[in-house]
Design a protein around this nucleic acid. Sequence first.
DNA 1: AAGAAACGCAACCGCCTTGCT
DNA 2: TAGCAAGGCGGTTGCGTTTCT
Length: 227
Amino acid sequence: MGGVAWSEEEDHLLKKCIERYGEGKWHRVPVLAGLNRCRKSCRLRWLNYLRPNIKRGSFAEEEVNLIIKLHGLLGSKIDEFRWSLIAGRLPGRTANDVKNYWNCHLSKKLVNAPRIEHQTVINMEKFLTPHPPNIATTTGPTKPTDSDHTSKDNQLKTEEKAIVWTPLSDIEVHRWCQDLVNGEDGHQGVEEPGRFADHQFGQFDDGGSSSKWDWDDSIFDIDLWTL
DNA sequence: AAGAAACGCAACCGCCTTGCT
DNA sequence: TAGCAAGGCGGTTGCGTTTCT
């Protein structure tokens, strides 16, 4: 392993500690649990291995497809990937799981599949229009923009378009994500959020505890401006 | 059957963000 | 406002397992 493996005894102590005192206050966990581990190790062990409803084993096809699409959405034009956000769309999966799966499986496979990435770029350019957009935003924070932008600045080179951030309307965000998940460049109108959520996201079996979640929650908690 | 190579994944590290004083 | 501590995250490492030759 990458370090000293956790013993069953350590797992038991950590689990008991979390069950008794709850998550958080990780700096106290090693002391409370009587573990000779740092706070980070305890937190990681809990989040990635001991936490209830952790789904183990191979990824389902739907999960893989979603990872690919969300990775394209969240990572293709941005310097950093957000594994936690992607993992948040996959009940029972951890960011570490998704990251490992991507690094071991998908990153290699997709090297020879530029079409997917290209399509994602198209999708992003379609909705991330150059500043100023004159689109009223009703969702979330707005990316700080340079108020000194001139009309000359707006004449962007093609390769710069996708990194110029502008607010999206609710409808555009829905349409954007619908395209990505459906894998279709051409959208078929704007669906109401509930219907979309049921069709695309409410299918995972995580043990029956929370097999469905609200579309609004699932998409608007993505902080589009901090990706 | 044995050694090499590839794979899978748990764990660690360093950096960034956030909240508190 | 600055400094510190803790939480959180992505990238990387390293070792056990599996597959290949």
